[in-house]
Simulated scan of single mutants.
Amino acid sequence: MARIRIYDPALCCPTGVCGPSVDPELTRIATAIFLLEKKGVDVKRFNLSSEPQEFVEELKVQKLLEEKGTDALPVVIVNGEVEKIGEYPSNDELASWTGLSKGELSKKDKSKNNITLL
């Protein structure tokens, strides 16, 4: 199965899903990662503000930051190869990389009128 590493820009918390106005893209990726972890996928996120050493130790990320600055973030590395620069992967991409179905990367919250969290 895939090994996925996501190098986030500086966020206020590990998921970026906090504060008065939440970016829906951060909510979607946080939900997808949570569900991937539940399925046993080796996926990790690193936050530039709280884990800068991870950005230094991953030479591909370090090089992108030197070339493009923080505009390169987020950087997504799958099985050691850079797959995305400057944007989060779609649920289709995550499904393709992991062999899961796209439906397995959305979550129905039954306590809130069957709203699908993307």
Rank of each mutant, 00 (worst) to 15 (best):
I4V: 02
R5Y: 05
D8R: 00
A10E: 12
A10C: 12
L11H: 07
L11Y: 05
L11N: 09
C12I: 15
C13G: 04
G16S: 13
V17F: 02
C18F: 15
G19P: 14
V22H: 11
T27F: 04
R28M: 12
A30W: 06
T31P: 03
A32F: 07
A32C: 04
I33F: 10
L36S: 02
E37L: 11
K38R: 13
K39F: 10
G40A: 03
V43R: 04
V43S: 03
R45L: 08
R45C: 09
R45Y: 09
S49T: 06
S49R: 14
P52V: 00
Q53K: 08
E54C: 12
F55E: 01
V56P: 04
E58S: 05
E58H: 00
L59P: 05
V61Y: 03
V61I: 05
Q62H: 11
K63Q: 12
L64A: 06
L65H: 04
T70E: 13
T70N: 14
D71F: 06
A72W: 13
A72M: 09
L73S: 07
P74T: 03
P74F: 01
V76I: 06
I77W: 00
N79V: 10
N79Y: 14
G80S: 14
E81C: 07
E83T: 01
I85P: 03
G86Y: 01
G86P: 04
E87K: 14
E87G: 11
Y88H: 03
S90C: 10
S90D: 13
N91R: 07
D92K: 05
D92P: 00
E93S: 09
E93Q: 08
S96A: 15
S96G: 11
W97R: 15
W97L: 12
T98A: 14
G99L: 04
G99S: 06
L100G: 04
S101M: 03
S101H: 13
S101N: 09
G103K: 04
G103T: 00
E104N: 02
S106R: 14
K107V: 11
K107H: 13
K108S: 13
K108C: 15
D109Q: 08
K110F: 14
S111C: 07
S111M: 11
S111I: 15
K112S: 07
N113F: 05
N114Q: 09
T116A: 09
L117T: 08
L117K: 10
L118E: 05
L118D: 12
L118C: 10
L118K: 06
